[in-house]
Amino acid sequence: MKWLDQVRVTVSKKKYEKEGVFKGAIGTIILSEIRYNQFEVVFSNPDGSDYAEIEINVSDLELVKDNGLSDQSILQDLPKHDPHWWCKVEDGYILNLLGEKKNKIPYDYNS
């Protein structure tokens, strides 16, 4: 999972639902950097208007459609174009563009 990928919310949580985002909602990761193990995801209506733009835990998301963006493209959106920013989730690990892993145990993003 990474910037501009389409993702689906896999859980029901009050903090998402109060913003109008329910389990099964599909949105787009709109900001490239992961902060506090969260992506900022935007959810839009069929007419293109947005009904929510909120932070979602990476553990509460699954990939729907890979946008196919390269690491070079992601780097353009990262703060100060710094490859140290955590920005991808692959096989249960939060990664940066240098291939470094944030968590020690796969799918345990706080490890």
Binding site: L4, T28, G48, L69
Partner: peptide, 13 residues
């Protein structure tokens, strides 16, 4: 890429 890979790419947008 926000234009070419999102605004003019994502179906709803």
């Amino acid at each position: 890429d926000k234009i070419t890979k999102y605004l003019l790419y994502e179906p709803n947008k």
